[in-house]
Amino acid sequence: MATTELREVNTTLQSAAKAQVNEPYVIVNPRGSHAMACGLDGPLNVTVKGSTGYYTAGMNKEASITVEGSAGPGVAENMMSGVVTILGDASQYAGATGHGGLLNIKGNASSRCGISMKGIDIVVHGNIGHMSAFMAQRGNLVVLGDAGDALGDSLYEARLFVRGTVKSLGADCVEKEMRAEHIEILKELLERAGADAKPEEFKRYGSARTLYNFHIDNAASY
């Protein structure tokens, strides 16, 4: 990336993904560039050697993208499928509005991780920041470390699993019973993410569903 334009990098990756050749690609010197390896539509292995800017792997479909560094805001935003792995930390809005696939963050994730997520699975090996899973609709957010303020505010049907402490829960987010089916889901996710943790160590949080239909006694939560 020190010598190649972003458009050329993305065009090459996008055509390779579309052609289903599934060859490994390596990007060196990413220099924090934005919108890297976004819009891939097909199986492809991409490794980025270094840290990236905004919207890395945005709207990914099927491709496996690994960032050997930290990722900027909105990594894997609106991802549809595939796997995005961040070896370092992720900035705010990681996995925002993602519909599917796995976002595997080995370090910490900043604020608004999984905001408005719609079916994506996100595993964060470290901690997550405030307002994470805000208005999260579907999918699973797994946090091996601690969660910041207002976790799961205005949550819909996404499942949140946190091993460490939760600084505070957002409106309409409550701790829920960990049933066998949840242990099963979590076990599978931890395995896929290569996480060294036991499902039994986690607590589950979900929507109390009190904001689903307006009721006058809940007006203060809006």
Binding site: L6, Q14, H34, A35, C38, G53, Y54, Y55, G74, Q92
Partner: peptide, 22 residues
């Protein structure tokens, strides 16, 4: 959910253009 202000919007537009080949 993933940008605030014109400086971030510029990057969001870049992403949308990159995904749709400009």
């Amino acid at each position: 959910p993933d940008w605030t202000g014109p400086d971030d919007l510029e990057i969001k537009i870049l992403e949308l253009r990159e995904i749709t080949g400009w």
